[in-house]
Design a protein around this nucleic acid. Sequence first.
RNA 1: GCACGCGUAGCUCAGUUGGAUAGAGCGUUUGACUUCGAAUCAAAAGGUCGCAGGUUCGAGCCCUGCCGCGUGCACCA
Length: 715
Amino acid sequence: MLLAGASVSKLYSPLFHSINFTSINANVTLIKLQDKFKKRLQKAALELFGVSLEQLSAEIPPKPELGDLAFPVSFELAKLIKQSTGNKVAPRTIAEQLKEKLAAADEVSRIEVAGAGYLNIFFDRAQLLSAFAAVPPPAIDDASIDALVVRPKQMVEHTSINPNKAAHIGHVRNAVLGDTFVRVLKTAGNAVEVQNYIDNTGVQVADVVVGFKHIEPMTLDEIKNLDRSLPADRSFDYYCWDLYTKVGLFYRDDDPNGQPNPEKLKLRTDILHALEEGTNPTAELADYVATRNVECILDTMERLGIRYDLLARESEILHLHFWDRAFQLMKYEGVIRLETEGKSKGCWVMPFESHTGTDEHEADKIIVRSNGTVTYTGKDIAYQLWKLGHLGLDFNYRPFRKYADGHVAWVTTAEPNSEVLPEVPRPDFGGGVTVYNVIDSRQSYPQEIVARGVAALLPELGRNASVHLAYEMVALSPSACAELGIELSNEDRAKPYIEMSGRKGLGVKADDLIDRLETDALREVEARHPDLTADEKAATASEIAVGALRYFLLKFTRNSVIAFDFKEALSFEGETGPYCQYAAVRANSIFRKLDRESLVDAERLILRAGGDAEIRETVAQALSGEAGTEIWSLVMLAQRFDEVVAQCAASAEPANLAKYAFNLARAFNLFYHRHRIIAEEDLTKKAVLIVAANIARRQLTSALATLGISVPERM
RNA sequence: GCACGCGUAGCUCAGUUGGAUAGAGCGUUUGACUUCGAAUCAAAAGGUCGCAGGUUCGAGCCCUGCCGCGUGCACCA
């Protein structure tokens, strides 16, 4: 439901897409135009000054009166000319010469030299509006595109929550960031595989098993009965959340500040060994607990429109001997070495020369312990090798969950031939050309080791095949702690924010927050639209809640710590998701009320402006002056969507897109206030307004869809 | 100690890879609903871009040194 193509194409009336009224290429985009001018400038620079420009930056002028596109190229050229000839030439003079040399393109009305030497380009507004109006909406259809070409696969791992408790907002930041990046990559035309790593045999699951076996204590059947008896709003993951906190206290003999009791810690170690071993009653119990938590977490994520292609489990990495293979490869390639003396005697280590060793901190990273067991980093290298398609082993797979639209999330299994969903063919998993791991920045160091280890094994792929998509944590603001009834120590009170802790049960659970958002949204919807049915109200409230939460988590750049505050997160006003949705809803309401004849007339008129000089002149008139410039700048901003997506994909920073969507919504709201579209009597101006509004809502809807935010019918 | 990140308006944050007069939201003050929907819009006030040097036509952005804050640096995962 959140894929851009489906919702956009329904909204946008495809009246004349098959007819070309325009004299210029209907597929014109701002990116293409920009490239065209870069090439011309490079050619001109070579002809005039004998200078070849490698990199040429274009920019959007600060004000629309200064043009639509600017090149500060003359400053750079002045320097280069001085270097090669020794002559000092004023940037303005250079700009004037370049201007003369640039043959005006069809899409351009004029070129000006401004300031100290900027080359400012003014587009032919009527011509381009006509071209933009003719551009069909991007039809993103995974199936049809996949059938046509085999594209290199981008791989994104995100969420990866330890399956021993409910998700909190820190986990949601990871999932929303990852999911949005996946949407960005897809919108940019990439094939993407989404993985969620399930550490079902780790310490955290072992801890909850300790709780079930030694605190409760319960058998597997009793746990199943308990699970069935739990209410929907206090489900199994919530129960485990509380139990996990109890286990932490249990280890310390119920004294939060006490030392762990070694005998009780041994219970954990024993269970951990049983889990790694597999095929025993404890492992079976743990599997139930982990699987149920995964199901609950997937339910939570689906409320936010987040889905997966594959759940890769640690149990299979162990049982299918991924590590053994990786170990062989690393020894063979000499990436690790066996230490024969010193502190790490008997361990296999990876040399890490950038860190100089001190007494306290070892320079080299231990991959295999002296007792022969592998560290987490070692297992991660094996998994990363598989992701890149270079391990030489594969998982077995079975379907885990079938979503309402038929999409299937698969899970790894040790059992061969487990595929029991013949109507859904299994995709080929793994073999990504680039692997993005969405993991918080506290794990930068181990992630660096994994990436280097893999790069050392696979020099042909290199360091850039593994990308750590790092982000800062979500912490609790002091006021959020107060609202949650958390008592703070004096030490914590002095801090600007408090780190969340699953172990201490310190955090805002994702479902609780979504519930609150939905309740607040529902109250507003009921006040504004009492005529809607209960189902419609609930669905709208849900869309608003998702918009608010996703936008809140995306508006911050990745390396900014979010000090979570209820007031900000629950806001529907200002720079928020609902603000953006509201702008799109208003835009849609115009087209709902607009009679079809007006729409058809408007599109026909604007499309004909491309070829008919007389019509073009009247359209140009409507787009001139202060009011016209304001309309035009809305169109220009809307048309930058592709460029923003491309930049977002390259920088792996979804916050750019969030800011863009907000700015576009803001520009539209301004436009909306300034112009009465339906009541406009000047038919040319009305046509311009209709087409501009249509372009703006089309692009805003696409931008929001890429953020995973849908546009309600009403709100 | 070492590595990485951060420091921009009262608060929370952007800043298009070095470009034109540093921008948003919240909060404060003031104004706008008989209208395609006010979850909106307009206006005002608010800045030594942590400090000091340097690089150049140009620095919030790059370099060096300080100051302050955060996070890592396990034979844990």
